[in-house]
Design a protein around this nucleic acid. Sequence first.
DNA 1: CGCCAATGTGCAATCGTTTGCATATTCAGT
DNA 2: ACTGAATATGCAAACGATTGCACATTGGCG
Lengths: 346, 346
Amino acid sequence: MQKKRTTLKDIARATGVHVSTVSRALDPTERKSITPEVVAKIQAAAERLDYRPNRIAFGLRTNRTMTVGVVIPDITNPIFPPILRGIESVLEPLGYASIIVNTDSEREREIRLLEVLRDRGVDGVIHAAVLRSDPSIAKAAQDGLSVVTLNRRVENSNIPYVINDEDLGICEMLRHLTKLGHRRIAHLAGPQDLSTGQLRLAAFRSAAERMSIEIDPQLIVTAMRFDEDEGARCTRELLASGHDFTAVLCANDRLALGCIDVLRENGLDCPSDISVSGFNDMPFLQLARPRLTTVRIQQYDAGITAASILLRLMNAGADDDIPLETVLPVELLERESTGPVAAQRR
Amino acid sequence: MQKKRTTLKDIARATGVHVSTVSRALDPTERKSITPEVVAKIQAAAERLDYRPNRIAFGLRTNRTMTVGVVIPDITNPIFPPILRGIESVLEPLGYASIIVNTDSEREREIRLLEVLRDRGVDGVIHAAVLRSDPSIAKAAQDGLSVVTLNRRVENSNIPYVINDEDLGICEMLRHLTKLGHRRIAHLAGPQDLSTGQLRLAAFRSAAERMSIEIDPQLIVTAMRFDEDEGARCTRELLASGHDFTAVLCANDRLALGCIDVLRENGLDCPSDISVSGFNDMPFLQLARPRLTTVRIQQYDAGITAASILLRLMNAGADDDIPLETVLPVELLERESTGPVAAQRR
DNA sequence: CGCCAATGTGCAATCGTTTGCATATTCAGT
DNA sequence: ACTGAATATGCAAACGATTGCACATTGGCG
């Protein structure tokens, strides 16, 4: 029932020229081949009739939809909104719109949603939910779809990725804890099929080795998801194991929040009994008490960076060489959840 | 550089029938007019060639993009992600994709983004960022665009809207406070150009009247935005006014969080000195201490409801009568930020 | 055996653009 | 004034689907 919009044909009729002339007059790069006064006439008519180009027809003809897909695990996870705003801040001014889809970290969903995006002819995809080995996205990239991955990377591929300096973050955190006197340090690792989980665990191991801290293998527990429930479960496991520890370095903030809750349930105070650290500095973390010591990652900037790379990818001359890896700096935030190792141990 | 996809024409060539026959064979509602064996042959070919319909071409021909626009103030505000998931949960299975845009509550941005959405030929719009009087969206609806507003409503229009039972929520909160003995109750009102702000203030006034509680006009302070900074500012104003109060009923959670911070800065404990209440029960609120007494609104369900109504609107026979107003139930959550009025007043 | 209705398929136009090519006009140079 | 280039515009074919209509085939029935 939409009131019909004015088309090139309408303008052509109104100005007495051919529709192709109108098309050229309205296209900045083609405009030069048209007499200035007829350009003026056409622009005036376009203005008067309130012409708005039909992007669908444009898309069909040119095979460019000016749309990008953004794949994330779950928009409800607060680290993603800032990323999305970052992406939007570079893409939207250029006329791109984005379609955001949530995979809930389910492989079938991810595959299906990727199909959906391709069906809609997106010009590119920013993917913040890839698995470490992810054939579907690799294949899409192979087929010529422009793809950038964010926060994670798919191995053995030449898909550009933007990640945070996980290594440095973990390393600084570990140094921070040792400086406070901690030696028996547990690690709540993230899911190992996600590159962040895997990277942070590897970073933990290698940093410990470098600093000559002996890590009891029993003190490394792996979560199946990055959420509070898993943080709680892993902490219970840790306590049940009977192995002693004075600090827990968690692979992200949500694990840390779950961890602190369980410690409290068991009469252990954070930080006076046990220190706990997070990773990400997610939004709203400042509401939690004790305020969590964590590693800040650049969420908004990550979005900006990924979008910029995607742009270059989409408009790439083959000449253009796009950086495969971009590592964003991180920052240690010392707050209240970590403190000096207690004098008397439990 | 995309590897070219298979089209109806390819299937037609492969099966030796006309492209229109292929189209019909693949369309469930048209299928019945084609001989079963040729349907089978066509489907087999479609399968074999991995045919995926081109939605762009479909959109151009049928004027249906199977895309809806979702307009929100800011995805970074945690009440929106659940709403979006709710919307997605009904629209995505039906083949719709959504384009989400952030207005940052700026009128020009809102107008421009609405244009963007219309340019892209969205089939409908869910608008959670309208102003109380909003000509641009009213005009769009007039032009035949399907629109539903969410959380807010535009006055003097017949645009269907989904809101929460603000009235009931405020009323129950006020009753809760009075039951605790509070009489001198302040109100941190939201922006009055947003219908939630306006509705909640009106509800506050009328509920107070119904309960015969006298409200000092000086104890009503209006925020310019729904955020912590404004909550803080208004609370300072309240304290500076010198008027006495024992409770602050805030128009939303973020105002309440800002309020509590400022009270604490001034040596006032919540709830033992002053009770504070919020509204929305936004995600991550449970991290805050004291845990905030608030009114839970149904965020996910609001998304579901709005999407369902939009669907009916988009597929409306004129016969179909769509509810103009949907009011979702709310629930009072008594937590720690409200308590009995202190024996000795400051 | 012939006629008509029913059924299945093909034809071609259409949606609104873009774009390679053909054509018409202008203009400069001799 | 005539040729040839340069320049501006028009023509028409795409892009990939849908859909009203025409046509051909079949089968039933008198």
